[in-house]
Nucleic acid binder design. Structure first.
Lengths: 197, 197
DNA sequence: TCGGTTGTCTAGCGGTGCTAGGATTCGAAT
DNA sequence: ATTCGAATCCTAGCACCGCTAGACAACCGA
């Protein structure tokens, strides 16, 4: 019995190694450089080993994406819980989101730019993805304003952040003014009551 | 003399054929299906001919992108000029933009998702790209609100639209509620004075 | 010790973007 | 009219891609 358990453990360990190596390689040289050959060489196994863990490259991207979703959710929650007041919380969320995208471009790509074979916004959406959206909803749901569905509001706010993140990173927006754009977005989109606490 | 002119004309004609065929193929089966072999076969020339017109596949994508930028600018201008009042103009702009992205997904990808080797938001940005941004600016600059730079405002609004367009198309936002999200965006972002004309 | 399962690797398939070099065509000068 | 030279185009091939079949070796249980 214990032998099988050990093997299972080692197998799981190797799977983590594959995902971590893929992520590392993608972060260093971009996803184009993550080929099955290079990846296999880095983990010091032959190519077919990859296919005993994942259906293909797409699933490896998906695994990195799920890892990233959990981290993104944690980063957003950490930032919002440290802020006082709704306005500050929303601003903190926006900054945390964009900082995550900037600091982990490859992971962000795996999540929202590449095809990782994951279902989004559906019944069978993986839990980490649902939870990442939930993390946004927790803060944004409170500033949607009267008569606006919190879910739909969060989707819209998220889309705006996503647009900023992607266009900025690929040099399609002039660099440097990100801060002002975020402020504008938060000021206009978030409805914060002025009543003192 | 006239012989050389004819040859030059035929060459330009063939270049148009390449771009049009690439676009058509991408729109039909996605950019992944646009391989140099398939493209060469469709235009009934051999592969190397492509490389006598373009440096590589990237430049072909770029050519499609420039074509698309002109069409996008035209679509936006047509929609906004037909609308009465600032609020309606902004809404028309948003709808026209998203409709363009939905109806020409491959062109939209060439413009804003793939690498066409083009410079964005810089001195040497190709004219069609600058003009497409100008088309947005013409309408959005008027509803930026006091103390907000029109350019920066337009960039932010554009980013929001881009986020909606991409996330919707890839199924990362629940389909069907696009209309409400656009209304939300326009209502919150556009500053329209209520004074009657 | 043996048999069978499990695991891994080598080798290879069809595809990709791209290019070197030969063949052919064709205008122009003699 | 003929020949030369340049421009044009194609065949063939390179290195790489994702992925897989099938041979081989290692190991566990009987």
């Amino acid at each position: 019995m214990s032998v099988q358990e050990r093997k299972q453990r080692e197998r799981a360990e190797r799977e983590r190694l594959i995902v971590a190596t893929a992520r590392e390689l993608a972060e260093q040289q971009g996803w184009d450089a993550v080929t099955t050959r290079r990846l296999a060489e880095r983990i010091e196994y032959s190519q077919p080993v990859l296919y005993s863990h994942f259906r293909g490259k797409r699933e490896i991207i998906g695994a990195v994406a799920l890892e990233g979703a959990a981290e993104l959710a944690a980063a957003v929650r950490a930032a919002t819980s440290a802020a006082k007041g709704p306005r500050a919380r929303v601003a903190a969320l926006a900054h945390a989101y964009l900082a995550f995208a900037e600091r982990n471009p490859a992971v962000y790509d795996a999540l929202f730019q590449l095809d990782g074979g994951l279902a989004y916004a559906q019944e069978d959406t993986p839990e980490p993805l649902k939870d990442a959206f939930a993390a946004l909803l927790e803060t944004l749901g409170g500033v949607a304003g009267d008569g606006v569905d919190p879910g739909l509001y969060t989707e819209t706010f998220w889309a705006a952040l996503h647009g900023l993140a992607t266009l900025t990173r690929e040099g399609r927006l002039p660099p440097g003014d990100t801060e002002q754009r975020v402020e504008l977005l938060v000021d206009r989109l978030a409805i914060v009551s002025d009543a003192p606490p």
